[in-house]
C-alpha cells in the first residue's frame, strides 16, 4: 500500500518537474469574459520592475493572464465539428455599444391591432391542402389553388337568381372585388402608418354597402370634376351629406358696417355687464344632481364616489357607466358655475 502511494507521488513529482504548471495565483481574481475572449486583471502592477525591465515584465504579466483565460476556455463544453475540436462560447457579458440604433418595430396594420386587442393568435397553416374533387394536393391560394370556384365547369342557378344572369362572370367579378378590397386595405394601412391623412374612399367593394357608404360615395363623385364640384347641380330634395367636413366661411372684408358694429358692441356688453348670464338647463341639471346626491347621503348608503369606483371595477353594466359619465359632467359643471 505504502509503496503504491509513494510511486504515485513520485510520478506526479516527476511530471511537475518535467512540465511547468498551468496554475496561476493572483491576489484579486481576474475577471474573465469567455464570450469576448477577454480577461481583465485589476491587480496593481510592480512599478519598479516595469521601469527596469519593461518588456519581459509585461510579457510575464500577459502570460499569466492568458493562462488564466485559456484555463477558463478549456473548461467550456467542447464539440467536434469536422475533425476540429471547438469550444462553445457563452453569451458575452460585457456590453459593447451598438453600431446603429435598434430597428423600429414594424407598424401594426388595422387587423393586427384588432387581433391583439381581442387576443387572436396567428395559426400556422400549411401551404398545400388536399383537394377532394381533384384527389390531389394543391396550394391553398394562388395559381391552381384548391377549391377554386371560378374554375367550375358547371354552376347550378339558384332559384332566387335571375335566370339570364351569367353565374360564371359573377363569381369572377366577386373574386376580383375581394382582391381589390385587399389591395385597398393594404394601401390604407401604409397611409395610416405614414401619419398622413388617409384618403377618403369612394364605394368600397363590400358585399352590403350601407347608407353611409353610399352617401359618402355620392359626395365624392360630385366633387370629382375638373371644377371640384362647383357646378354640379343638386338633386331635388337632397339632404346635405353626412361625414363631410364643413368649410369655414368668412365675413366679407368690406361691406355691412352695421353688422360689424353690432358684433363689436355685443362683445363690449358681455365684458362690461357684471350680471352673470343664467344657463337654465345647466342650472336645473345641477339642482337635480345635488338633490339626488343629498338623498343618497341621507340614506346612509354609499356616496357617488363609491358608486363610481364600483362602476370602474365591474365595467360591464351600461347603466353604471352612464351614471359615471353623469357624475363627471356634473362635477365639471359645478366647477364652471362661479366663472359664468
Amino acid at each position: 500500500m505504502d509503496s503504491l502511494v509513494q510511486s504515485v507521488l513520485k510520478s506526479s513529482a516527476e511530471k511537475e518537474s518535467k512540465y511547468k504548471t498551468t496554475e496561476v495565483v493572483k491576489d484579486i481574481e481576474v475577471d474573465i469574459d469567455e464570450g469576448h475572449l477577454l480577461a481583465v486583471d485589476p491587480n496593481p502592477l510592480d512599478i519598479k520592475l516595469l521601469r527596469s525591465e519593461r518588456d519581459s515584465y509585461l510579457k510575464a504579466l500577459a502570460r499569466n493572464d492568458t493562462q488564466l483565460l485559456i484555463n477558463k476556455i478549456w473548461e467550456l463544453p467542447v464539440e467536434r465539428v469536422e475533425d476540429v475540436i471547438v469550444a462553445k462560447l457563452p453569451e458575452p457579458r460585457t456590453v459593447v455599444p451598438r453600431e446603429k440604433p435598434l430597428p423600429k418595430e414594424k407598424p401594426m396594420t388595422k387587423w393586427t391591432q384588432y387581433a391583439r386587442e381581442k387576443g387572436i393568435n396567428k395559426r400556422k397553416k400549411g401551404r398545400m391542402v388536399w383537394d377532394e374533387t381533384a384527389k390531389e394536393w394543391k396550394p391553398r391560394w394562388g395559381y391552381k389553388r384548391a377549391g377554386d370556384d371560378t374554375k367550375d365547369w358547371l354552376i347550378e342557378v339558384p332559384d332566387t337568381a335571375d335566370p339570364y344572369e351569367d353565374q360564371f362572370a359573377k363569381r369572377i367579378k366577386a373574386k376580383k372585388e375581394r382582391v381589390a378590397k385587399n389591395e385597398l386595405q393594404r394601401l390604407r394601412n401604409i397611409a395610416r402608418n405614414m401619419k398622413g391623412k388617409v384618403p377618403g374612399v369612394g364605394l368600397t367593394p363590400t358585399d352590403t354597402p350601407d347608407k353611409d357608404d353610399v352617401s359618402r360615395a355620392l359626395h365624392l363623385a360630385r366633387k370629382s370634376t375638373a371644377s371640384l364640384g362647383k357646378f354640379t347641380q343638386e338633386l331635388p330634395k337632397e339632404k346635405p351629406a353626412k361625414h363631410v367636413g364643413k368649410k369655414r366661411k368668412f365675413e366679407p372684408m368690406i361691406g355691412n358696417f352695421n353688422e360689424e358694429k353690432k358684433r363689436a358692441l355685443d362683445i363690449l356688453n358681455k365684458i362690461t355687464n357684471k350680471q352673470p348670464t343664467l344657463n337654465i338647463t345647466q342650472a336645473t341639471n345641477q339642482e337635480i344632481y345635488t338633490e339626488e346626491d343629498q338623498k343618497r347621503i341621507g340614506k346612509g348608503g354609499r356616496n357617488h364616489l363609491e358608486g363610481k369606483a364600483e362602476a370602474n371595477k365591474t365595467g360591464t353594466g351600461r347603466a353604471s357607466q352612464k351614471e359615471k359619465a353623469g357624475v363627471e359632467k356634473a362635477m365639471v359643471k359645478r366647477d364652471e358655475h362661479p366663472s359664468s
Partner: peptide, 18 residues
C-alpha cells in the same frame, strides 16, 4: 458562438500604468 481551441493564437495585451 464557438471557437476552435487550437485556433486561439493571438493575444492583444493592454497595460495601463504610470
Amino acid at each position: 458562438k464557438q471557437v476552435r481551441l487550437s485556433g486561439l493564437e493571438h493575444i492583444w495585451h493592454f497595460t495601463a500604468a504610470e
